[in-house]
Design a protein around this nucleic acid. Sequence first.
DNA 1: CCGCATCCCCAAGGATACTG
DNA 2: CAGTATCCTTGGGGATGCGG
Lengths: 139, 139
Amino acid sequence: MASDAHTYTDTDTDGFDGLAFDVFSRACPSRSTLEHVTGRWGGLTIGALYEESLRFNELRRRVDGVSEKMLSQTLHALERDGLVLREAQPVNPPRVDYELTPFGREVAEKLLGLIHCVEGRMDEVLASRARYDEARGGR
Amino acid sequence: MASDAHTYTDTDTDGFDGLAFDVFSRACPSRSTLEHVTGRWGGLTIGALYEESLRFNELRRRVDGVSEKMLSQTLHALERDGLVLREAQPVNPPRVDYELTPFGREVAEKLLGLIHCVEGRMDEVLASRARYDEARGGR
DNA sequence: CCGCATCCCCAAGGATACTG
DNA sequence: CAGTATCCTTGGGGATGCGG
């Protein structure tokens, strides 16, 4: 049942004309990991965990808008890919901490680089949008 | 017609409730740009354009699996955000070139950094997945 | 508190046909 | 070639309820 978040869409593996790892190909295995990382919630989750190790509900509060289900799914996919470490402590009430693995931290840094790059240029983006919308009136 | 027929369907709720720039917040305007960049087709499109300027159908062939509709939508979103430049030449048959803006190239570099980081560690990822799946049997 | 299972709906997105 | 308009399907993902 953990099967949905990572179906590799191996629909047409017929080709393979010698290029094993082409990110642009549907069959490329890294594409699924990339999707987990850059997906709607993956990036935000990783970003949150980069700052500090967090528990499930802390994470849920930090990542604004994520549902319990999606957070759970996201964490599983990231854990499976080796980006996140899940540490369940056998206490009562249950306590589970999530933290990034070294690989996860590396990915997080790249990701944060991207985020800051975009954030630092948001004024440009906003201006560009205004221009674009202007040019095509109220359509 | 149309007001919302092709509003690029983002959940661009850039509401601007006057709050600061917290990427983790739903209201953060950069989140929508990030989604365009890291979305299913955004990243691959940018990646393809980083290598060379391309025409519509060249792009379509390069980005394996993208439909005409989605490519069109993606390009519009990226153009609007100021990441992609659209150059239509008034010739017959029509010729339109897409290329990255300087900002687009900057973003592309960050993105490629991420991609290479992940690709370079795919063996780890695959191993981690195997371990994970092992641990929870054939479920 | 942690989180899986179920139901269900809506919008992302694929296929197709058509225009300039 | 370079798209737009339309229809239709699929699964992403929200809401809720239960079990450990």
